[in-house]
Structures are given as structure tokens and as C-alpha cells.
Amino acid sequence: MAVFWAMARLRFLTMLAYRLNYWSGVLTYTVYIGGYYYIWRAVYAGRPSVAGMSIGGMVTYLAVAWMTRAFTYNNLDGDIEEEVRSGLVAIQLLRPYPYVVGKLWSAGGEAVFRLAFWMLPGMLVAALLFPVHLPTHPLTYAVWVASAACAFLVNAQLNTAFGLFAFSLQNARGIRWAKTRLVDLLSGVYLPLGFFPAAAQRVMSWLPFRDIAYVPAAIFTGTIPPAQAAAAVAGQLAWVGGMAVVVAVFWRRLRRVLLVQGG
């Protein structure tokens, strides 16, 4: 256990070492949120609501969804791919802890940095710049924190599984880029999932992507009413478990086929 804490701490300190990281995250995500804010402002021009959502609700949703992404985002897929491809993973395998669990903890260290330096200040900036409505009930915040934590676990494991799977593909960089865009679309950071056609929504309710950004943001804005919030978080927890199974299966397959030459 101490080993894992140390890995998380190390990753946190690595992020801390680059002074650029202190302000680049907030600025980058403000640019993202700003872009979508102006698009939606034009969409709402003269309409009180679109698909049952007011402009205030929409802006709040986008800010929280993007900031949840700022918190959960990591490069685990790229890191793992790189380590497997270069053979570095052989040294990692000699170490006395499970490789993928170690990766998860270091991603956790990064997430704590992102939370403290990017997400919380970013929400503050977004609340100042854009017409964001904050929930009034303290319980909403508590459920939202739990939901965001689950979102991190689903996303980190999804990236781990993708990294373990994609190392064998050609042009992994292009595919990873496409995958990031797909996850952004399906997790609802471009637009709330309620805007998709009904059939698409049914399919998405069976996929883990909505748990990465949509669920926490929808809980925050009340799109998922408080009465159903607990069920939504339970759904996220189910996917945390589901993705753990997927990671385990991919990891076993990789260990069977992996052949590192020299080293």
C-alpha cells in the first residue's frame, strides 16, 4: 500500500515540477468552455429553452462537464502503449506490485494535481466569466464529489484497457486521437446526452462513456434529479467494476503474447 501512495505522490510532484502546469490548465479549459459557450449562446438566441434546458443550465452543464474532464483526463493509454512498445514494461514487470494497479495510482496522483490546480480554480474562473448557476443544496455537492471520483476511476481504467489493447495497432497516435474525440462526444462534453436522438441515447445508456463526464455534470445541474442521483452513481460504480474486469482480461492476454527482446 505504501508503494502505491508513493507512486501517486511521485506523479503529483512531477506535475508540480513544471511551473507551466500551474496556469496552462485553467487557460486551456477556459478556451474550451468559451468556444462552446459562444456556440450555445447563438443556438439559444431568442429561445427560452432547447430540449428542455435553459441557457443558464446549459452553460453550467458545459462548465462542469469540461472541468470534470480536466480532472479525470490522463495519458495512461499513451504511456502504457509507449512502455509496451519500447519494452520498458519488462522492467516494470520485475517490480513487486501489479503493473496496472501502479499505473492507476499514479494517475490518481495526477488527478489530485488536476483537481487542485485546474478543476477548482477553473470552476471559479468559469463562474466569474460565464453565467453559471451553482446548486443550493449541500447534498448535491456531496453526491457530485462521489460521482466525479467514480468518473475518474471509469476513465482511468478505460484508458488502461485501451493502452493494453492498442499497443499492437499501427499508427497508435492517430487512433488515440480519434478515441479521445469519440470519448469526448459520447461522454457529453460537447453537448448533453439528452440532445442526442432517442435511439442513440438508448445505446449510450448501456455504454460506460456517459459515466466519465455526463453523469457528474448532470447531477450538478439537476438534469439528473436528486432522487435519481443515487441510482446514477450506482450505475457508475457498476462500470468501475466492469472496467476492472476488462482491464484484467486485457492484461492477461498481453502477458501471454508479450515478448520483449533483450532489454
Partner: peptide, 29 residues
């Protein structure tokens, strides 16, 4: 080939965003 595929895929995602957006409004500005 995988470059072509991931490119087509990325474009499709961006266009999907616009397509879904325009199912709710007739025009943007």
C-alpha cells in the same frame, strides 16, 4: 490505412456534433 481510417473517424465525430446540434435549431446566427 489506419491513418485514413482514424482520419475519417475523427471527421465523422466532429460532423456528428454539428448534426445533433442542428436537430434542435434551424440556423446558427
Amino acid at each position: 490505412l489506419s491513418g485514413v481510417l482514424s482520419e475519417v473517424f475523427t471527421q465523422a465525430i466532429s460532423l456528428t456534433f454539428l448534426a445533433v446540434l442542428f436537430t434542435h435549431v434551424p440556423t446558427l446566427a
